[in-house]
């Protein structure tokens, strides 16, 4: 673990340069520039708000648009970074066939570049909060941890995905679709409190309720989104009951995903 970080540290300059290249290339000939990046969570917020006006989702005292945008912020970051990261190895086939450096730099860089868009989402969130006259609480110190955690979750999926994608390009196409579906299993459109109410308070699934709730929180995004909303909007401390199942799962799966990637990487240049 420490050896991995040490090796990556020696390549920090390469990673920053590659990340900078990615960002420059992404926005060089786009006249709307980085502005286009904000459209996605913003549009989704609008759509969800409209949908909510028909079905009615209880969000407590927090206005629905800001709550949902606060959910979409970590969610979009996760989704975009995982998608970019899965395709990063294949996208850099030219480099892979010609020059050697640890291949893990590609997915890692892909995730890093998404922090740029993330900072813009934060700017928008700030606008939302000013509009609704809300202020983040002192618990917001948890935010950096949450973001690193989100990046790690994204890597857990994308390392193994990127490696598989070299062999089977279907993975690069299918994974984003799968992640899209995962959104409905995450508290994006609805707050986690509704799930909690249904399963824990009302025991809707009978004896299975607690198990189902744990299963739900096994999705790291459930914990991430809920905690983000808690510390930024509700002024509550993180609910570790929600955080730990996903966190443990990530801690177990990330090394596995990395190991698979390392095993596959020796043959990237031959197969790609």
């Amino acid at each position: 673990m420490i050896a991995v970080i040490k090796e990556l540290w020696t390549y920090r300059e390469l990673m920053t340069t590659l990340a900078w290249k990615e960002i420059v290339v992404r926005y060089k000939q786009a006249y709307l520039g980085i502005g286009i990046a904000v459209l996605k969570p913003l549009l989704l917020t609008v759509i969800f708000t409209m949908v909510r006006s028909f079905v009615g989702i209880d969000t407590g005292k927090i206005p629905y648009p800001v709550l949902t945008f606060a959910a979409l912020l970590p969610w979009t970051f996760f989704q975009e970074s995982a998608a970019a990261s899965v395709n990063s190895v294949v996208a850099n086939a030219g480099l892979i066939k010609k020059i050697y450096f640890p291949r893990v730099i590609f997915p890692l860089t892909a995730v890093l570049t998404k922090f740029v868009e993330l900072s813009i989402y934060f700017f928008l969130l700030a606008l939302f909060m000013i509009w609704y006259r809300m202020a983040p609480s002192a618990h917001a110190v948890w935010v950096p941890f949450l973001l690193v955690y989100t990046a790690l979750v994204s890597l857990t999926i994308s390392l193994v995905g990127a490696a598989l994608n070299v062999y089977y390009r279907d993975v690069g196409q299918m994974l984003p679709v799968g992640i899209n579906l995962l959104m409905y299993a995450s508290p994006v459109i609805y707050p986690l409190s509704l799930v909690h109410k249904k399963l824990i308070v009302q025991q809707a699934a009978g004896d299975w309720s607690h198990l189902l709730y744990t299963l739900y929180t096994l999705n790291p995004l459930a914990g991430i989104i809920d905690t983000f909303q808690a510390v930024m909007l509700r002024g509550d401390p993180p609910d570790f009951q929600v955080l730990w199942p996903g966190f443990v799962a990530t801690l177990l799966l990330l090394p596995l995903s990395y190991a698979i990637f390392r095993r596959a990487e020796a043959y990237f240049a031959d197969v790609i």
Binding site: T17, K21, V25, I99
Partner: peptide, 20 residues
Amino acid sequence: AGLVGDLTGRENIYLNGTIL
């Protein structure tokens, strides 16, 4: 190898240099 079309010559020198 590793020259990126969208970057300028100067940017490519930095990119290629770090890759090396």
